[in-house]
């Protein structure tokens, strides 16, 4: 009985891992394709046949073979540890995401809280890697990243809180379930973003903040290649670097999926009962998340990046006051209606 439950647990743990791995491989390929198409190119075309779909697998094979270089004066323990912590943090957060109406890793009552808490570990691993590298560029990247992630957690949490106020639960499954069906008019889905006008503003703040949390352009300062070479990853090579890459893409997906749950109805079909069900639920959930990921990529290949002080200004002077104000307004709206 105990072994069975352990096996079940492992199985439940394995599914998100497989999803992450498959997603990351194809997201990296997809990002390159998106970049290619946006830039009037084709992107990878050679490995695997159709549009080079196996490019990431080839890259992974290459990375596995690469030498694992640790700088002479690096803090070897922390240097080795950092990628694992980073990946573990983003992986653990998948536990509370409701992938489908019948599948959730752990149906925690404090799911949102857990998710936000565990993703804070990311900044620790970034600092760890940057500090342990004993490289000035890495240190710069780490410091920038720490400041950025700590700052942007505030508007993220405030916008998430606004949703929680409307939904009335910290359990992501509950939040999703209450968005099922159609609204009173009968043709629009019952998504939270459509229920409250201020939640649209909350979503904008949320999206900007997750761009910053996931180190995406225009907030990719921690690894801005034209200034800091590669930021905190400068000294990493081979599989350790691949872990960072994996964690970064996993983080991107995680935050996008969170956005899908909170604002776009999670696994709910946009057509009411049509195309609904556990399997379809998984499809809709991933589709919504991946669309947000695509928008992140689209933004990345369009915009220049902010400067570090502008980033902070945007966060502390604009987004945080705005999110607080928005929070109050949403609460008022909820009280009135």
């Amino acid at each position: 009985m105990i072994t069975e439950s352990i096996l079940l647990l492992l199985l439940f743990a394995l599914i998100p891992l497989i999803i992450i791995l498959i997603y990351a491989l194809f997201a990296i390929w997809g990002e390159r394709k998106v970049a290619g198409f946006i830039q009037d190119r084709l992107g990878p075309m050679r490995v695997g046949g159709w549009h080079g779909w196996a490019q990431s697998f080839a890259d992974l094979l290459k990375l596995i073979q690469k030498e694992d270089i640790i700088p002479a004066n690096a803090d070897r323990f922390l240097f080795r540890l950092a990628p694992f912590i980073m990946f573990a943090a983003s992986y653990a957060a998948f536990a509370v995401l409701p992938f489908s109406s019948s599948f959730i890793g752990s149906n925690l009552d404090i799911g949102v809280f857990f998710l936000l808490a565990i993703t804070s570990l990311l900044s620790i691993s970034v600092i760890m890697g940057g500090w342990a590298s004993n490289n000035k560029w890495s240190l710069f990247g780490a410091m920038r990243s720490a400041a950025q992630m700590v700052s942007y957690e505030v508007p993220t949490i405030m916008s998430v809180l606004s949703v929680i106020v409307v939904a009335g639960s910290l359990n992501l499954m509950t939040v999703t379930e209450m968005q099922s069906g159609n609204d009173t008019l009968g043709f629009l889905p019952n998504w939270l973003i459509l229920q409250n006008p201020f939640l649209i503003i909350a979503f904008v703040i949320f999206f900007i903040s997750i761009l910053a949390e996931a180190h995406r352009v225009p907030f990719d300062l921690p690894e801005s290649e034209s200034e800091l070479v590669a930021g905190f990853q400068t000294e990493y090579s081979g599989m350790r670097w691949a872990m960072f890459m994996l964690a970064e893409y996993a983080d991107m997906l995680l935050l996008s999926l969170l956005g899908a749950v909170l604002f776009f109805g999670g696994w709910n079909s946009p057509f009411g009962d049509f195309m609904a069900g556990p399997a379809w639920g998984f499809f809709w959930f991933m589709l919504k998340g991946l669309l947000l990921v695509f928008v992140m990529m689209w933004i990345r290949w369009t915009l220049p990046r902010y400067r570090v002080d502008q980033l902070m200004y945007l966060c502390w002077s604009i987004l945080i006051p705005l999110s607080f104000l928005n929070f109050v307004l949403i609460a008022l709206w909820e009280m009135i209606f």
Partner: peptide, 10 residues
């Protein structure tokens, strides 16, 4: 950029 996304590669 989205216009370029749908235009053919050069």
């Amino acid at each position: 950029t989205i216009r370029h996304f749908f235009s053919p590669a050069v």
